[in-house]
Amino acid sequence: MNIYENKVEVKKDEKIKGYVHSIETFGAVDGPGIRYVAFLQGCRMRCQYCHNPDTWNIGVGDEMTAEEILDDAEKYRAFWGPQGGITLSGGESLVQIDFTLDIFKKAKERNISTCLDTAGNPFTWKEPFFSKFEELMKYTDISLVDIKVMDPVKHKELTGVDNKNIFEMIQYMAENNDDMWIRHVLVPGKTDFDEDLKQLSDYVASLPNNVVKKAEILPYHTLGVRKYHEMEIPYKLEEVEPPTAERVKNAERILNTANYNLYKNWRPKKYKIFCYKDEFKYRIC
Rank of each mutant, 00 (worst) to 15 (best):
Y76S: 11
A66P: 04
E134K: 15
R267Q: 14
C285S: 08
V211H: 05
H21A: 14
G224I: 06
I273C: 01
V145K: 03
M64N: 00
I166P: 06
T159D: 12
F79I: 02
D179M: 04
K236H: 07
V240T: 15
Q199W: 00
V211M: 07
I142G: 04
K270G: 03
I69T: 11
T114S: 06
S131M: 00
T65K: 07
W181Q: 09
G85D: 09
G85F: 03
C43Q: 08
T222D: 15
A73P: 06
N265I: 12
D54G: 00
F130R: 03
D72H: 14
P268V: 06
K108W: 05
A174C: 12
Y19E: 02
H184L: 05
A78N: 14
M231V: 00
I166M: 05
T55E: 04
V20D: 12
K15S: 15
G84F: 07
N57W: 03
K11N: 15
K105C: 07
P188I: 07
T222H: 13
N259C: 01
E109C: 14
D102Y: 08
N52Y: 06
G61L: 05
Q83G: 09
W266F: 08
Y235R: 07
Y76C: 13
V185H: 11
G18I: 10
L88N: 03
E9M: 08
A107S: 08
I23E: 06
T100V: 04
T257K: 03
V29Y: 09
F129W: 02
P188Y: 09
P53H: 05
V60P: 07
H155R: 10
D72W: 01
I69D: 06
M169A: 14
E175G: 01
K227R: 14
D141S: 07
E14V: 14
P234T: 10
T65F: 05
N52M: 07
D192T: 05
A251N: 10
K106T: 01
Y271G: 02
Y19I: 02
Y203K: 02
F129L: 00
G189M: 13
Y203S: 05
T124R: 11
P82G: 10
A78Y: 15
R247M: 13
S201C: 08
D141N: 09
D278G: 02
V95T: 06
P242C: 11
K148C: 12
M169I: 08
T244Q: 11
W56D: 03
C47T: 00
K277S: 14
N2M: 09
D71P: 00
W181D: 05
L237N: 13
E135T: 11
N6C: 07
F133H: 09
E63Q: 15
G84Q: 12
T124N: 13
K164E: 13
D194S: 13
P82I: 11
P82W: 12
I217Q: 13
K269V: 11
V37S: 01
I23W: 10
N176I: 11
H184C: 12
V8T: 15
K227L: 12
V211R: 04
W125P: 01
E279I: 15
P53F: 05
